[in-house]
Design a protein around this nucleic acid. Structure first.
Lengths: 215, 215
DNA sequence: ACCTGAACACCGTTCAAGT
DNA sequence: ACCTGAACACCGTTCAAGT
C-alpha cells in the first residue's frame, strides 16, 4: 500500500543525479552537462533536479567530489613510495575514464573538503615516512599537479577566499591532522617552495640525463 | 576625406577584442566572458565581434594564445637550467596575473599551435644541453603541468583528434624541429613515461628528505 | 514530498538591413 | 567593409501549481 514510484522508474536521488551528470560528461563532454540534459538522461524534467541538488554549481561540485573519491586511498601500512604510486596511477586512471576532469577541477572556484581530505591522506603518508611538514607540502605541489592539477595553496589561510564551512568543521574536529600540522609548521613562502620544487625536478632530470649518456 | 571611424572610438580589431576579453576575465572571471559583455566593454554590440573573431570558441582560443605568448622565451644561449627557471617563473607570473588561465587551458578541446611552439622551445633548450628526445619529452610532462597544466601528449599522433591544420603546416615547414625529433625518436609509451617521471620526482623527494634529516 | 509547466533573464549565433 | 536590431534556440533558475 506504500505509494509506488511512478511506473518502473527508480526514484531520483542526489547520487543518481550526479552519476547521470558524469555519464553525460563522459559521453558528450563537460559543456553538454546542462540541467535540462541531465534531467533528460534520467527521464525527468530539469526542474526536478533542484529537489536533490542546490543548482548547477552544486552539481558540478558534486561531480568533482565523486571524481576525487575515485582515487584509491592505500592503507596506512603500505610503504610510502608504493602508496604514492598507487594513488598516482589511480588518479591517472580516473582522468582517463573522465577526460573532462582537469577542466572541471580547474573550474571549481572553491577548494572542496574532498580535495583537502585527499591531500591530507597524501601528507600523512609522507609524514609517517619521516618527511617534514615543509617537504611534504612541497611534495604535494609537485606530485599533484602531475595527476589532477587541482593543487592550490590549500594550507595558506590567506590564499583563498572564505573557505567552505565544512572544511573548517573538519579542521575543528581534528579530522585533518596532517593538513593542520602543515598549516602550523610549514613556512608559507610560496616562492621558496616553487623554487625548491623546481630545483628538485631539475636535479632529477639532470641525473637522468647523465645516467643515460654516462653509462 | 577618409571616412573617420565613429566619434572618438578606436576601430575594432581582433587584437582589441581579445584584450577586452582578457580584461573581462581578469575583472570578473572566465564565466563573465560573454560575447555581449565583451562587446559592452568595447562600447559595441555583441554582433560586431563576429567581424574579428569567428565565434566564442575562437575568442577563447585567442585568449589562450595570448596567454601562452606572455611566457618569456629566453635566448638560445642561456644556460639550460637558468632558461628553464626563467620560463617557469614567467609562466607562473602569467597565471598570477590571470587566475583563470588553468581553467581556460584545461577547457580548450584542441592543442594550439602556440602551445606546441612553446613546448618546442622547451624541448630545444633541453636537447641543446644534451638531453635525449626521450628524456626531454618526459621533462616536458613533469615541468609543464607544474606551471600551466596544459600538457597532453602533443607528440603522439594517435593521442588527439584531427590536429589544427596550422600545426601540420608548421611541422611541414620545419618550424618545429625539436617537436619533430621527439615524434620520430621518442618511444611513445605513455605508461613508461609516467612511471619514469614519477620515480624521478620521488627520488628527488627522498633525497631532499635525507638531506634535511641527515645533515 | 516530490515533480511539473510556464515564465524570466541571459546566452551564442544567424541574417537581413543599414551606413 | 563594418556595425546593428530583431529573431531563434538554448541556458539556469523562480514560482505557483499539481499530485
Amino acid at each position: 500500500m506504500t505509494p509506488r514510484p511512478r511506473a518502473g522508474r527508480d526514484p531520483l536521488s542526489r547520487e543518481r543525479v550526479l552519476r547521470a551528470a558524469m555519464d553525460v560528461a563522459d559521453a558528450k563532454g563537460l559543456d553538454a552537462v546542462t540541467m535540462r540534459r541531465v534531467g533528460q538522461a534520467l527521464g525527468v524534467e530539469a526542474m526536478s533536479l533542484y529537489n536533490h541538488v542546490a543548482g548547477k554549481d552544486a552539481l558540478l561540485d558534486g561531480m568533482a567530489d565523486l571524481l576525487v573519491g575515485e582515487i584509491e586511498t592505500p592503507p596506512a601500512d603500505v610503504e610510502w613510495k608504493e602508496a604514492m604510486r598507487r594513488r598516482a596511477w589511480s588518479g591517472r586512471a580516473a582522468v582517463r575514464r573522465h577526460p573532462w576532469a582537469p577542466a572541471l577541477l580547474a573550474s571549481r572556484p572553491r577548494v572542496r573538503l574532498t580535495m583537502v581530505a585527499y591531500l591530507d591522506g597524501v601528507t600523512g603518508c609522507l609524514m609517517r615516512a619521516g618527511f617534514s611538514a615543509q617537504v611534504a607540502h612541497t611534495a604535494i605541489h609537485v606530485l599533484d599537479s602531475r595527476v589532477l592539477g587541482f593543487t592550490r595553496d590549500l594550507f595558506d589561510p590567506e590564499a583563498q577566499g572564505l573557505p567552505d564551512p565544512a572544511i573548517l568543521e573538519a579542521f575543528a574536529a581534528g579530522a585533518l591532522p596532517y593538513a593542520e600540522r602543515v598549516m602550523e609548521e610549514a613556512v608559507h613562502d610560496d616562492d621558496a617552495e616553487f623554487a625548491f620544487g623546481l630545483d628538485l625536478i631539475l636535479e632529477g632530470l639532470e641525473r637522468a640525463r647523465d645516467r643515460e649518456s654516462g653509462a
